[in-house]
Write a protein that binds this DNA or RNA. Structure first.
Length: 594
DNA sequence: GCCGTTTTCGGCCCGACTGTTTTCAGTCG
């Protein structure tokens, strides 16, 4: 059966090819296909199983698209799409990946010069025949040549992982803050929405001074390899790695409308602008204003603009137009956690782990500095070949922790471990030794290639273990480097509800694991989460903020995050899980000591 | 192509920058 995302990708392709046929990415038909695709992507029911009339009930899907979907599901293809593919073969479509080449230009190049691939375009540039076309010139030809070169290093398709983009963005913001008159400089776009991969880095700057001076400084930054656009309000550059960085500079009283505009998503903005029009207003990056009189209704803060439209402020990570605007209107946005709500960290390594960098004493002090009320110390357990701690080492650490506890009357120290989930779902040590720990995180560190059924089984088995309070970095993915393990997410969530085992939201920017899709799937379930930094040094305790953003992305209610709970409530919950399934524990003890 | 208590036709989000032009089209975000 075709999945929703497979169906959506057919519609996206239909949109792309229709743009070539209609000569514009903004053609209404193109947008209609995109709307339908987005709606199907976000649908919770399997669209392949829906009747034509049920399909038209989906937002953005009308009779024509509904019948195309049925055609695809029943016959495996869409006649209209096949026709378009014939007219616009992949090599030709590739042309529009060249920055500066849109649908109009691509078609014009083909009609006038017979250009039907990037290779053809290169030849036409070499022959200097493009500059002869009406509306083109030598300058355009040169720019196209440069754009083609760029395709090799970056191109429109590559989306850098968030960790890479965040680093660049914060660097740029920091540098621009030193320009005279600059009051604020912050990352926007998909970075602020906390997508796991980033199209472009967007930076918004507020300046009371000379805007041109900001642009001047921007294009001179060390990260800049090439300047794409250069203006007082708006500039764009490419980094050496091909990352595009966009800069907008606005006046202080335009921050709110500019931040909304620049944060997106595109679909969210279009929806907001439509709401503005319904009220006789228009929304741009400069202001929400009356159409007739141009009188400004709101612009200073995001809250004001949303409020004027009858909406609660929408957290950036939710702005995808996938129910966020309706929830903001109806007052049903989730009550999200913020960093200030965190009362503990429950995945922390010390130098006892082979890859840990700071001493136990320093990690504990750093947690105390953050005013935490509980701390789970979770060094790697013995099954992890290089980094794991032996029983003897673990017991010695426990003694040290007990001694340290006296110095921290406010904060409860839990001696835990990051256990390794074996092939069959078992973890390190034996049940007796495990029962000596006060907290346990279990994670997959091996056998990433098992099939879906086996991976699901091993996770579920680990969740049932009374020594396991939470599953660490659920999928084991490294964003942009390594895919996560295959999992039956619903089965895992069922087990989480049944066992009371929490699912970690790992804070490392290259993990952000569990992924947002998993968190969203758990929205209407009684699944608990724990935000864990997986810190390997004191500085990484600050990564908690990334886990908070990730929880927002997944619409996770604060009440479901166990480390926002009071110390008493948290400790009660930990104890319950470890006491529960005592029969299971007895059975395991018998197994170990027949 | 979709949509609708101002509608089944006539709308459909907004603006900057570039290169080519004397007022605009194309592209992009």
């Amino acid at each position: 059966m075709l999945s929703n995302s497979e169906i959506a990708s057919h519609l996206y392709e239909l949109a792309r090819l229709s743009a070539l046929a209609d000569g514009s990415n903004n053609a209404f038909r193109v947008r209609a296909y995109e709307d339908a695709a987005r709606s199907i992507d976000g649908a919770t029911e399997p669209v392949a199983e829906m009747s034509e009339s049920a399909l038209t009930g989906l937002k953005g899907v009308g009779k024509s698209t509904a019948s195309k979907i049925r055609e695809l599901v029943e016959g495996g293809s869409i006649a209209k799409l096949e026709e378009l593919r014939k007219e616009f073969p992949p090599d030709f479509v590739e042309l529009t990946r060249v920055p500066g080449v849109g649908p109009k230009t691509a078609v014009q190049l083909r009609d006038a010069l017979g250009v039907s691939s990037v290779e053809d375009l290169k030849a036409a540039i070499a022959a200097e025949s493009i500059r002869e076309l009406p509306g083109f010139g030598a300058r355009t030809e040169e720019n196209l040549a440069r754009s083609i070169e760029r395709l090799g290093i970056g191109g429109k398709e590559r989306r850098p992982p968030i960790i890479e983009a965040m680093r660049t963005a914060l660097e740029v913001c920091q540098a621009l803050m030193t320009v005279d008159g600059v009051q604020r400089a912050e990352p926007m776009g998909s970075l602020r929405r906390f997508r796991e991969t980033i199209g472009d880095v967007d930076v918004l700057v507020v300046s009371t001074g000379d805007h041109q001076a900001v642009a001047d400084r921007f294009v001179e930054l060390p990260v800049v390899n090439e300047v794409v656009d250069y203006g007082a309000r708006k500039s764009a550059v490419l980094s050496a790695s091909g990352m595009r960085i966009d800069l907008r500079v606005v006046e202080p009283d335009q921050w709110g409308s500019a931040a909304i505009y620049f944060t997106g998503s595109k679909a969210h903005n279009i929806h907001l602008r439509q709401m503005a029009l319904d009220r006789g207003w228009t929304l741009s990056e400069y202001a929400l204003a009356e159409i007739d009189t141009e009188k400004v209704i709101a612009s200073k803060t995001e809250e004001e603009v949303y409020a004027a439209l009858g909406l609660a402020w929408v957290p950036p990570e939710l702005r995808e137009d996938s129910g966020d605007i309706e929830a903001a209107r109806d007052g049903t946005l989730p009550a999200l956690a913020e960093v200030k709500h965190l009362r503990g960290d429950l995945h922390v390594h010390t130098s006892l782990s082979g890859d840990g960098r700071d001493r136990l004493e320093d990690m504990v002090q750093a947690a105390a500095d953050r005013k935490y009320l509980y701390l789970g110390i979770t060094d790697h357990a013995e099954d992890l070949a290089i980094n794991g701690a032996s029983r003897r080492q673990m017991l010695a650490q426990r003694t040290k922790i007990e001694a340290l506890q006296g110095q921290y009357p406010e904060m409860r120290l839990l001696h835990g471990a990051e256990l390794n989930i074996g092939r069959d779902g078992s973890v390190d040590y034996d049940a007796d030794f495990l029962s000596g720990f006060g907290w346990g995180v279990a994670s997959v560190h091996s056998l990433f290639d098992l099939d879906r059924a086996k991976q699901t089984e091993r996770i579920v088995t680990a969740m049932r273990d009374p020594a396991v309070n939470a599953i660490g970095h659920l999928t084991g993915r490294r964003i942009g480097k390594r895919p996560g393990i295959e999992l039956d997410v619903d089965a895992v969530l069922d087990a989480a509800e049944e066992t009371g085992c929490a699912i970690e939201i790992n804070c490392h920017l290259d993990r952000l694991d569990a992924p947002a899709e998993v968190l969203l799937r758990a929205r209407d379930r009684d699944v608990l989460f724990v935000i864990g930094t997986d810190a390997h040094d004191v500085g990484e305790l600050r990564n908690a903020v990334w886990g908070i953003h990730q929880s927002h992305r997944g619409w996770v209610e604060r009440s479901k995050i166990v480390n926002t709970w009071t110390q008493a409530k948290f400790l009660k919950w930990v104890g319950e899980k470890r006491m529960a399934n005592s029969e299971w524990q007895v059975a395991r003890l018998r197994e170990a000591n027949p």
